[in-house]
């Protein structure tokens, strides 16, 4: 019995779909985080808004790069 296939579909293709789906969910989460940071910095100004907003975009960019990497290599 070949363990690499399930109903004629490669198991690694299924794993790849799951990975992509998880990455997409993370991107949505990162987008919510960007919105949240915007809401927070609108509520309270402490002079460090650029750094914090910048970091939220770094997080979002990282998530996008990971999904691109996963798509290209898996």
């Amino acid at each position: 019995m070949n363990l690499d296939t399930f109903l004629g579909i490669s198991i690694w293709s299924i794993v790849k779909i799951f990975v992509m789906f998880a990455n997409l969910i993370y991107i949505v989460f990162a987008l919510v985080m960007v919105r949240q940071v915007k809401l927070m910095t609108d509520t309270l100004e402490l002079g460090y808004e650029k750094i914090i907003i910048g970091f939220s975009y770094v997080n979002l960019t990282f998530a996008i790069l990971v999904i691109i990497y996963s798509f290209l290599t898996l």
Binding site: W12, N23, F29, N59, F62, V66, Y69, T73, L74
Partner: peptide
């Protein structure tokens, strides 16, 4: 190896979040 790299990247995403 490719899946291992993606798993580690995913781990760092969770850590960052």
């Amino acid at each position: 190896l490719r899946f291992q790299i993606v798993a580690i990247l995913g781990w760092y995403m969770i850590t960052m979040a």
